[in-house]
Design a protein around this nucleic acid. Structure first.
Lengths: 237, 237
DNA sequence: AGACCAAATATGGTCAGACCATACATCCTG
DNA sequence: CAGGATGTATGGTCTGACCATATTTGGTCT
């Protein structure tokens, strides 16, 4: 009776949070991995002693974080399957927080510069043939691009290959998210520049530095490139 | 009464995704920001022509991404309020993907090194008094710490202050998430080291370099520090 | 008037049950 | 044996009810 003074930040375990914890335990305990299936929603609800809607909310959280994907129907591919899409989650995260002005464009662009410099230096230290080959392909595709949107798509592929060349999946996910968040801005930037020759020169310089194993030159080329692409680091706002 | 006409023409956007899109539009259109309230769940459901459960799933997604927080009851603080907690979302993301072996400890540690080096250099370029003061406080607290867990807590505060000194909220969120993900590992590392004198020397060196405005020395000190804390950067797996 | 307590109310949290939509599985034809 | 009709397991959604919580309101006693 005297327990009336409950405020937020007290401990209040909601049912779906309990479900979340139990599913996470189960993943760890059973050593589940990408491709494995979770029990059906109804079965899970019965096992955990909660309603199906609570199970669904928990699954929605896991889907948002990119660890499960649900598929209706019947068969091996149906149900809630463990996946690995951290990039999608990061993309949503950035987009929403940019929309709320919680993060400014300047912060996102600065972060991107940091990451890509590091990735370039790292890639130069241990160049991976497949990744550098994809970088070259992207450069060629940009040469052939007919409009800014197409150019930007291949530009994204270039920077993604750069991140992959660094051999760190977390970095790849972050770069993908940053580029998705900046996609519209990037198209505008290309339109504003008009001539993409300078950008392409940068791309070629980055690519060459990585193939030559010159980490310092690679990082410097990336810095120069992003400074050209985002001259003032955005209008903040 | 919306059950009369269902268009099954295209690939189906799920109802809660539609709700998500509409809420996002509304945030942008009305210029909503942190602290503003969304309509109640029942009201939203009626406005958007969907069931309350679909609204709830959408809100769960937004909560997962750290943009809303729900509070029951009545009054100005009740309901779904826009917030800004990107760090929590990142923490969940890392923890789950580490559990799924989608990301390795090595990748997380490498990422952390990159970010903190950058943050230290950045902080040295424009030292903020409040942040450097908090770094000094954290160092003193670590001197007084009586057990590894307590030491690690203040160590987290130190590295968080370092990130904040760089003046980039996205970086702060990422550092927080990385440290949370590595918290257990960090305690083990402190126990293994036994003597924290070397770590504290590092902290003091980082702090001094930032106050002196020596970006190069700050970055180098951070690199040395993390190399000491994570000697082998984990077995990759 | 003021203080205090009880009821009303608004809000999220949860559950149960019922459908629908989907896609594979199974069976029954011909 | 091929191919369509039916069965069934799964997610997706809606409805309505009830609970828990916290503020607001209003009435009562001092």
């Amino acid at each position: 009776m005297t327990t009336g003074e409950r405020r937020r930040t007290d401990a209040r375990p909601r049912a779906f949070e309990e479900v979340l914890a139990r599913i996470e335990e189960r993943i760890a305990a059973d050593g589940l991995t990408v491709g494995d299936r979770l029990p059906g929603e109804r079965q899970l609800a019965e096992q955990l002693g909660v309603g199906r809607s609570s199970v669904r909310e928990a699954l929605r959280v896991l889907e948002t974080l990119g660890v499960v994907a649900s598929q209706a129907g019947r068969g091996p591919d149906a149900g809630a399957v463990l996946t690995s899409r951290p990039g999608d989650a990061l993309t949503d995260l950035l987009r929403l927080h940019l929309g709320l002005a919680t993060l400014s464009m300047r912060e996102v662009i600065d972060t991107r510069l940091m990451i890509e410099q590091w990735a370039a230096a790292r890639a130069a230290a241990a160049p991976a043939r497949t990744a550098t080959a994809r970088m070259a392909e992207a450069i060629a595709a940009m040469d052939a691009a007919r409009d800014p949107a197409e150019f930007v798509e291949h530009d994204i592929a270039f920077h993604l290959a750069l991140a992959e060349a660094a051999g760190n999946r977390l970095i790849v996910a972050v770069v993908r998210a940053l580029r998705d968040a900046l996609r519209r801005y990037a198209v505008d930037a290309v339109v504003r520049l008009g001539d993409t020759g300078g950008l392409q020169d940068d791309h070629r310089r980055i690519h060459r530095a990585i193939e030559d194993g010159d980490a310092g030159a690679a990082a410097a080329a990336v810095a120069e490139h992003l400074a050209r692409a985002y001259p003032e680091s955005g209008p903040d706002s």
